[in-house]
Nucleic acid binder design. Structure first.
Ligand code: MN
Ligand code: MN
Ligand code: ZN
Ligand code: ZN
Lengths: 141, 141
DNA sequence: GTCTTTTTGCCATTTTATTGCATTTTTAAC
DNA sequence: GTTAAAAATGCAATAAAATGGCAAAAAGAC
């Protein structure tokens, strides 16, 4: 997805197109797996000249999440992980219990189970817990 | 589940049956929804005379989790949530995005999606995000 | 009860995230 | 392109959740 496209999405959501927001959204869109705010910061440090403050990263991610451009995943780790909200949607995630790697899986959304009265569902998330290939073979001791 | 039963499970796992472990396991077993360590502490404060230190709660929960007596859920909130590992297994959870309430749902485990080569799945978790009844009607403003 | 090992309490520290406020950037109007 | 209003940022302080070190206490074996 091109920068003008991302700018447009930010503007359409009613916000100002700032370098920080654009860089964060770009970063998450380019990554092939969900990232923590610190990982975003690290990526930006490697790929840009001006690195926004850590707090700015948090605020940019928050804004993007509140306005539906990125999504926070449910995790077992301490840090939050975010991924862009794309066209193709509804896939599962694998989380390694040892290295905390989180990767997207091409799995269809399971059907929505019945909820208690008055409850409203907005999203269904499927998480597979286990060991990634590297952690299982002990390549990363 | 009775106290001797719980003690037995702790001893069978190879650990000492301490008041803290027993109280924490009892607390999680009695609760009708997954609890955070702080919530466990709070419950114990209301239902017991001696309240273990916060760090002890953390360590007791950790031990129980490592030995398979309780399970940590994937959450969107900052605090971890734990539930006892019971006989009847594999149910989904609802998480309210406003009040962070987390409750168990009677939903069957979805089938395990195909994983990348070398990956090993250990558990499948289904999370429903949305608004609980109270938050939807604004009973808890 | 005595002995050995495990667990606990307390304090300090770490990790992750949030808040307050002065300064800067963005955007729109001119 | 200047200017003015609104929104976003940087920086320091603070908060929330969890972890680590170590001496004291409790569990279990005898
Ligand atoms: Mn994904
Ligand atoms: Mn449950
Ligand atoms: Zn791994
Ligand atoms: Zn709620």
């Amino acid at each position: 997805m091109t920068d003008p496209d991302l700018s447009r999405r930010i503007r359409d959501a009613g916000g100002r197109v700032t370098t920080a927001r654009l860089a964060v959204l770009r970063c998450l869109a380019d990554a092939d797996e969900p990232l923590t705010p610190d990982e975003v910061l690290e990526h930006l440090g490697r790929n840009s000249d001006h690195v926004p403050d850590r707090v700015t990263i948090y605020r940019a991610i928050d804004w993007l999440a509140v306005h539906g451009l990125v999504r926070r995943l449910a995790t077992v780790g301490r840090a939050a992980r975010y991924e862009p909200v794309e066209d193709k949607e509804a896939h599962a995630h694998f989380q390694c219990r040892r290295c905390a790697q989180t990767r997207c899986l091409p799995a269809p959304t399971p059907p929505l189970p019945p909820l208690p009265p008055g409850y409203a569902a907005e999203r269904v998330e499927l998480v597979i817990h286990g060991l990634c290939a590297a952690c299982r073979t002990g390549d990363t001791p």
